[in-house]
Amino acid sequence: MSTEHNCWQCGTPDVASLFCRYCNSLQAPIPNYYEFFGLNCQLALNPDHLQKQFYQLSRLLHPDRYTRRSEQEKHYSLQASSILNDAYRVLRDPIRRSEYVLNQAGFEIGDPRNKEVPPELLEEVFELNMALDELRMGDTEVLPQLDEMRQHFLDMMAEMDGELESQFLTHDAQPDDEARRKVLTGIRAILNRRRYIRNLVDEVDKQLTARNA
C-alpha cells in the first residue's frame, strides 16, 4: 500500500509520514500497524521499546493535543490515535501480533470456535470431556484430575510460547518473502493448536466457576 500523498494543508508533494515536513500539519493516518510504529514487519519485538514508542506517539497524536487546532487536524488526531491504540494492543501481545502478520500476508486463520480436534490431542480431549461430564453429573472426585489436566494444558501452552518465540527469530532472519512464508506456515500451525488448547482451558474454568457459583 502506497502511503505517499500531497499535504492536505499546503500541497507539499510526497508526504509519507504523520506530519508534513513543510507545514508540520497532521496528515491522514497510515492504517498499517507496523508502518504506523515505523517498524519493519518483524515478529520479535522488544516490549520496552514498543512502550516507549507508544508513549512518544501518544504525545504527538492524542486528541488532547488538538483542542485548539483546525477541525481537519482534530479529525485526523482522533483517527490516528485510535489506530495507534489499536496497533499497540495488537503489537504488544505476541499471539495477536503474529495473527496480524499472518493476516497481512494473506493467510487464513482458523476459526476461534473450530471444534475439530487436532489428531495429536485426541486422547487428552476424550479424557477431559469424560471428566467434565462426570463433574456435571455431580461427581466431585474428578476435581483433582481436572486440576491436573488443566495444569498439563497450561504447560503445553507455555511450551508453545517458547516455540513461537524461537520461530519469531527464525522468521525475522529469513532473506526473502518466500522463506518467511514457509516459517509463517509453521507459526500458523502452532497458533491453531494453541488456540484449541486455550479453549479447553477456558471450558474447564467455565465449568469450575459455574460449580462454585
Partner: peptide
C-alpha cells in the same frame, strides 16, 4: 489540570 492540558498550558502530562 486536564483543562490546562487541553489549553496547552501544561505540556508535560498526558492521560491515556
Amino acid at each position: 489540570v486536564q483543562a490546562a492540558i487541553l489549553s496547552g498550558d501544561v505540556q508535560d502530562k498526558l492521560l491515556l
